[in-house]
Simulated assay, not measured.
Amino acid sequence: MRAVVFQGTGEPLSVEEVDRPECDEDGIVVETEACGVCRSDWHAWQGDWQWIGMMPTPGLVFGHEPAGTVVEVGENVDRFRPGDRVTNPFNLGCGSCHHCRGGRGNICERSVPMGFLPIQGGAFAEYYPVRNADHNVVKLPDGVDPVDVAGLGCRFATAFHGLVHRVDVTPGDWVAVHGCGGVGLSAVHIADALGANVIAVDLAEEKLDRARELGADRVVDVTEVEDVPQAVKKHTESSRGADIAVDALGIAETCQNAMNSLGKGGQHLQIGMTTSDEGGQVSLPVDTMVTDEREFYGSFGTPPNEYDEIFRMMETGKLEPGRIVSERISLDEVPGVIENLGDYDTVGIPVCDTF
């Protein structure tokens, strides 16, 4: 089968003929219909995140935001049959640890990230495997376009999990989203669906325009202000500051700006992960966090049991992940799109749907 293959840190990705994945007794094999192209692919290609154990090796098939049709089922799998249309989170759980049993499989003690480690190949390929299928795999509702689902496995689902299950967003809250790439635009759309007043923060006019289309009530162009946190606060009631601030990029500047844009008792949601410049470490205003009782939360993917919540909101039209899809591309175009993500000029989510 054809697949996008990692050749080494910073080395050009290539589309090659590789062996079709084998189906283990607890897993399934899926024929790929769509797979989102994510900035996380770029981070892995650049060699980021070794400090948290994500170390791709040459020969690894990339891709972690999939949707497709089951073609093979392991002998121990009960919930799926060939022909089922499915998706899955990128961070695959074991299904049996304390966190998986408690509905938090996204932080499984033995989590395996799809398309980042050699033991779990990805979905930039004609076929992809999923381990522990009864725990990790999610059936798609009838009529759902796989392209609309392709961003759910990472960006959209991470933003949803964070805003719905990690922080406390209530109607009328001020939510400031710092960084309007794919995950940031997802956060804007989700926060708007939850009834929040949304402030989008970025330096690209095109991304801010898209944020407005997806529900942002106010925007802050960081190229036009000297103090980003104060510019955010001026948009909030009595300039009191944001109730929720989301860092959807993961660089020190956006993380610090997000935290400093909060009001007293505010909650910071960290979705973006850092680059090699930060190495996983960012300094924060600890004393102000103490005196203002500001809280810091992380969101890492989503457990499979939360997908039904997304699907129900899609069914009523409150959530439309497909609106964030920016372009449809072929497998041959994937390497170039990943490599160009370092320019930070992609608006929305590119999705590969031709294999």
Score class of each variant (00 low, 15 high):
127 Y>R: 12
337 V>S: 04
322 G>Y: 08
197 N>P: 00
277 D>Q: 15
156 F>E: 01
264 K>I: 14
355 F>W: 14
70 V>H: 00
342 G>L: 00
64 H>P: 00
26 D>K: 09
168 D>A: 10
117 L>V: 15
30 V>R: 05
136 N>M: 07
183 V>D: 03
47 G>V: 08
21 P>Q: 10
36 G>Y: 06
45 W>A: 01
321 P>N: 05
222 V>N: 08
151 G>H: 08
53 G>T: 11
347 V>L: 11
24 D>Q: 11
42 W>F: 13
24 D>A: 09
334 V>A: 10
33 E>K: 14
89 P>I: 12
257 N>M: 05
222 V>D: 05
38 C>D: 07
264 K>Q: 14
9 T>S: 05
34 A>H: 11
190 I>C: 04
14 S>M: 13
279 G>N: 05
150 A>P: 03
133 A>W: 11
148 D>T: 06
192 D>M: 00
9 T>H: 07
246 V>E: 01
21 P>I: 13
165 H>S: 06
141 P>F: 14
59 G>I: 09
232 V>K: 03
283 S>P: 10
1 M>G: 13
45 W>N: 04
190 I>A: 02
94 C>T: 07
61 V>S: 07
137 V>D: 12
340 N>W: 00
144 V>N: 01
94 C>P: 05
312 R>Y: 03
130 V>Y: 01
118 P>Q: 14
67 A>D: 04
51 W>S: 10
300 F>I: 15
38 C>V: 09
5 V>M: 13
296 F>K: 01
307 Y>G: 02
316 T>P: 10
99 H>D: 13
183 V>T: 14
154 C>F: 05
350 P>Q: 08
118 P>R: 14
199 I>M: 10
92 L>W: 02
168 D>Y: 10
52 I>Y: 05
319 L>S: 03
114 M>V: 14
133 A>K: 08
279 G>I: 05
298 G>Q: 04
68 G>P: 01
165 H>D: 12
323 R>I: 00
222 V>P: 05
235 H>N: 12
160 F>C: 04
315 E>V: 07
355 F>M: 07
218 R>T: 07
26 D>L: 05
254 T>N: 02
86 V>M: 07
7 Q>W: 05
69 T>L: 04
336 G>T: 06
51 W>T: 08
146 P>V: 00
339 E>Q: 14
313 M>K: 12
206 E>V: 11
241 G>I: 02
41 D>N: 13
259 M>I: 15
179 G>T: 01
105 G>Q: 09
